[in-house]
């Protein structure tokens, strides 16, 4: 399992095409502690917020928990599209900057089992203390699980941006 940060093969289905993500992309889905999540508010403005996350076993589906009453939930209920990004920036060498941006469509799930399962995965990836400090208590009652399904992946190295192409049917 890759919740603990081990890099393994991740299979993605993007726009009806299935493919295995190369390792330089996979590590961006596994290694980082935060992903920056951008959503659109009901009045049409972008909003950014870091999230702690897990990616489901062998898939490039990203899951995280958000409070039911939070602005992030409100945004995704109105517009399920979101963008996630993470990067490795270098303070002096622009050629060493690397990163990935995923455009995804989200699904909200408030089933207690799903929320609990995601919470347990988060505890495995981070640890109980950290997750409790970040999410608080009464997770099962107050949170919903968000699953983000990628529709487009863009990555960059230095100033070169590339769109990841999924070629297999």
């Amino acid at each position: 399992m890759n919740y603990c940060g081990r890099i393994m093969k991740i299979k993605c289905q993007i726009n009806g095409h299935t493919c295995v993500l190369p390792s330089f992309l996979t590590r961006f889905l596994v290694k980082p502690l935060f992903l920056y999540c951008s959503t659109i508010t009901p009045n049409g403005k972008p909003q950014i917020q870091p999230i702690i996350f897990v990616n489901e076993l062998g898939k490039c589906n990203i899951a995280f928990l958000v409070k039911k009453q939070s602005s992030l939930t409100r945004n995704l209920q109105k517009n399920p599209k979101l963008a996630l990004t993470t990067d490795e920036t270098h303070p002096t060498d622009p050629l060493k900057n690397k990163g990935i941006m995923i455009e995804a469509v989200s699904q909200l799930n408030d089933s207690k089992d799903e929320v609990e399962e995601c919470f347990n995965y988060l505890r495995k990836k981070y640890n109980s203390d950290i997750v409790t400090k970040i999410l608080g208590i009464d997770i099962i009652l107050n949170y919903v699980k968000i699953q983000a399904f990628p529709v487009k992946i863009v990555y960059w190295k230095g100033p070169f941006f590339k769109k990841f192409k999924c070629n297999q049917r």
């Binding site: 959503t39 972008p46 517009n79 979101l82 963008a83 996630l84 990004t85 920036t89």
Partner: peptide
């Protein structure tokens, strides 16, 4: 802070975010 995340809105109403 040296880097910031900048969010905009792409055609098709997808958010776009880059450092």
């Amino acid at each position: 802070t040296k880097f910031a995340q900048v969010g905009t809105i792409s055609p098709g109403n997808f958010p776009h975010i880059t450092p």
